[in-house]
């Protein structure tokens, strides 16, 4: 059976199934929440059960960016660049109150929510959220990936991206 014999829907489902069970996150710990992200990858919580244990140091090999911690204005441009270096398809989890909304730091140097810089798929609030919350967010993301349809996924187009 060739690939053309599959209906588009069935093919989409196969691809979604493959994608959602092998989400590779980029190692992107910013602050306190990064510790809980590390704990989630340790033996007790074992993020490998959800196929997301391969934390890649390079954004070019990653599908998921877990923004774990406070995004400052100084870091914002760097974060955007790293996100743009990730190949499509890519997803973002805003992990922790600071990444979701700036949290308790309503100050001159903190970006009030990472969604001002990159599009966010799943928000996980908490200060810091427990490792279980990260797993919960990951499951929510997997469900979201499972529902994706061709053509409906928009490419990232925020105004004035770094690369044009």
């Amino acid at each position: 059976m060739g690939i053309t014999d599959l209906s588009q829907d069935a093919l989409q489902q196969v691809i979604n199934w493959a994608r959602k069970n092998s989400v590779w996150p980029v190692t992107f710990g910013l602050a306190c929440c990064a510790l809980e992200m590390m704990v989630a990858s340790s033996a007790t919580y074992d993020i490998a059960r959800f196929g997301a244990e391969v934390f890649r140091p390079s954004p070019r090999q990653a599908d998921l960016m877990i923004v774990a911690g406070t995004v400052t204005k100084k870091m914002g441009a760097v974060l955007r660049r790293i996100h743009e270096q990730m190949p499509e398809p890519k997803w973002v989890i805003a992990y922790g109150s600071c990444a979701c909304s700036g949290g308790i730091f309503q100050t001159y140097s903190v970006v009030q929510g990472v969604d001002q810089i990159i599009p966010v798929d799943v928000y996980v609030p908490g200060c810091p959220p427990r490792p279980e919350d990260l797993l919960n967010g990951l499951i929510a993301l997997q469900e979201k990936i499972g529902r994706e349809r061709w053509g409906l996924r928009k490419l990232v187009s925020l105004p004035r991206g770094i690369h044009g």
Binding site: G69, T72, V78, F105, Q106, T107, V110
Partner: peptide, 11 residues
């Protein structure tokens, strides 16, 4: 340094 400067002393 300064990529995590959150302004705590001011806050």
């Amino acid at each position: 340094v300064g990529y995590l400067h959150r302004g705590m002393e001011k806050l």
